[in-house]
Simulated scan of single mutants.
Amino acid sequence: MRDRDVRTAVLTELDALHAGDANTRVVQEMGIWAGSVRVDVAVINGELHGFELKSARDTLERLPAQAALYNQVFDRVTLVVAERHADKALHIIPDWWGIWLASASNEQPVVLAPGRSNASNPNLQPVQIARLLWRAEALGILDHHGLARGFRSKPVEALTHRLAAELPLDLLRDEVRLALKVRQGWLGDNAPQQCKMPIHANLHPVE
């Protein structure tokens, strides 16, 4: 079982789950922490749901560090893990993460089975959510809320900290998700199974 086999199974499952849903976008290799870390698959709709994939050929060596980062950003997280890693993974990830078990035999396609339901993240960090934005997106949101004065020439880190400080968490989450849904130029945006949102011009154009 290879990583690409698990990825194909996950994308196919998500495509079926969200078929016809114009409010959902599925993105591969979505950057977090200002793009320095990437989650395998993200589903963006009324929540931000990250999917981390661990095939039978993978190890769980990086999972503790990945979990610590994902825990600050995603409303929900699901670990898609080969059955051989499942018991060990349960001791690494938090209780609110969901689990899908991946299995395959005799060169057959990977089969996914529910292992544990996910729950809402209790520890979201506003500044890390704001760091999901590109600079133009962050500035556009600041401008839309009358917060851009004195910040138009600032670096993106200053913009994200201002967003995190000035916007209530729920509003920040809404604005970030909406920006991500209409973003063009995602690294993994050529996936054939990806659910597509209509692409519009800048969400909050900077005047």
Rank of each mutant, 00 (worst) to 15 (best):
P126N: 05
A68Y: 08
N106C: 11
D170M: 14
E107L: 12
E13Q: 14
V27A: 04
G146C: 09
N190Y: 12
E157N: 14
V77I: 09
E175V: 07
R116V: 01
D87G: 08
L178T: 08
H161P: 14
L124P: 06
D95W: 05
Y70T: 01
A148G: 08
Q125N: 11
T24M: 09
A119G: 15
P205R: 13
E47D: 11
L203F: 15
D95P: 02
E13I: 06
V27I: 11
D95R: 06
Q72I: 07
P64A: 00
A104P: 08
V41K: 02
A158H: 15
L142I: 10
L14V: 06
K181T: 12
R57D: 02
H91N: 12
E61R: 05
D189W: 08
V27W: 00
L79N: 01
D143C: 12
G115C: 00
A158L: 15
L139M: 11
A9T: 08
L132M: 08
W97S: 02
D15T: 10
V81P: 00
H144R: 14
H91F: 06
C195R: 13
L178Y: 09
L163G: 09
L171K: 14
A136F: 15
F74M: 02
A86N: 06
L63E: 01
E83Q: 12
F74C: 04
Q194E: 14
V77N: 07
T160E: 10
K54A: 02
D21H: 14
P198A: 11
E61K: 07
D143P: 07
V26N: 03
L11F: 10
Y70A: 07
K181A: 11
A9C: 12
L147Q: 15
A201R: 15
